[in-house]
């Protein structure tokens, strides 16, 4: 018999669970203190990263865990933003209600966009999400013209229960709380039997069915749930940007979030976070370089926009080719090494 010696887990699970609690507490502390210690500029960057995480994390559940490669997320954002705008303007509702309405619309649209996944796979399924993107954005354009006018929906400063939350710092807190909530829900699902079932649906759908998992139902709930989350995030994003207009919701925007989960690590919540931060920071970094050195005779630094585009492309290519498990893979191998050193191996 093939013996698996040396293979007992180095530290059993309870310890890992404890470490997770500590990490979570640390994260909460950092999130809470951050805007108090950094400049408003970096608060803005942090807000953008938190928002990006709230969109990338559901996408990662859909694509990384359930294996449904989707380019539909920008369309779900606009579905959410416009549902939110419509109920806010028409019924004068508070943000949380608007977000719930947007989530409901997102769940329904996500269910419909997910239907092809029952019959199609691979390139064909991806093409169906591409088509869905353009069809939905076009529907949003028609809706925009009839409801809000050519400039799109202009959002008022954010107020909840009469409290003005439109300042940079309060916006940061609102978005960070939402992002944390999304992260918590996704972490819970990934740890549960339903999260396990998603992995089976992705890797071995025949075996999943042989375990009594309804592959169709699993695909549909994950499409629905993740689209609902992205749509809800769309409302916050529109409030934060101050307006929502169809030109913003491009295929390139959709690709940005896919790039985040690729760079961070597919199928990993920590990966979504790292990827969201990293991709948000790229233009910040390039702009800094360009501001510092890009004047007269600055060479390529005189083209910050083009340079950003090139660097962004190179990052995507480099991660696929050299680090397919993403930044979280780097973190994992680093912590493994630390654990091994501590144990004196």
């Amino acid at each position: 018999m093939t013996q698996s010696t040396s293979l007992a887990p180095p530290l059993a699970r309870p310890r890992a669970a404890g470490r997770r609690t500590v990490l979570a507490a640390l994260a909460v502390a950092i999130i809470a203190v951050l805007p108090l210690v950094v400049s408003p500029y970096w608060t803005t960057v942090a807000t953008n990263a938190a928002l990006a995480f709230a969109i990338a994390a559901p996408l990662n559940l859909l694509t990384g865990n359930a294996g449904q490669f989707s380019l539909g997320n920008a369309a779900f954002l606009v579905v959410g933003a416009y549902t939110g705008a419509y109920v806010t303007f028409t019924f004068d509702l508070e943000l949380p209600i608007a977000m719930l309405a947007a989530a409901a619309a997102g769940a329904l649209v996500g269910l419909i966009v997910g239907l092809p996944s029952l019959r199609l796979r691979g390139a064909y399924l991806l093409m169906s999400t591409l088509a869905a993107h353009y069809i939905l954005v076009f529907a949003a354009l028609k809706f925009q013209t009839s409801q809000f006018g050519a400039a799109g929906a202009i959002f008022p400063p954010l107020r909840i229960a009469g409290v003005d939350l439109s300042g940079e710092r309060s916006m940061y807190f609102v978005i960070a709380v939402f992002a944390a909530l999304i992260g918590l829900i996704i972490a819970n699902i990934m740890r549960s039997g339903h999260g396990r079932a998603l992995e089976a649906v992705k890797a071995r759908d025949v075996a999943a069915a042989a375990c009594g998992i309804s592959v169709a139902r699993a695909k549909l709930w994950v499409w629905s749930l993740t689209s609902a989350m992205i749509a809800a995030a769309g409302v916050l994003q529109a409030y934060y940007l101050g307006s929502a207009s169809v030109e913003y919701y491009t295929l390139n925007l959709a690709i940005t979030y896919v790039a985040m989960i690729l760079v961070g690590g597919l199928g990993s919540l920590g990966g979504s976070l790292l990827g969201a931060c990293f991709v948000t920071l790229v233009p910040v970094g390039v702009n800094h370089l360009s501001d510092a050195y890009g004047g007269e005779g600055g060479g390529i630094l005189a083209y910050p926009h083009e340079l950003q585009t090139v660097i962004y492309g190179l990052i995507i290519i480099a991660f696929v080719l050299l680090k397919p498990d993403g930044l979280i893979g780097l973190v994992r191998s680093a912590t493994d090494r630390v654990v091994r050193v501590r144990q004196g191996r």
Partner: peptide, 9 residues
């Protein structure tokens, strides 16, 4: 993803 990256480059 690589062809998307290529597009950007």
């Amino acid at each position: 993803m690589v062809t998307i990256g290529l597009t950007s480059v």
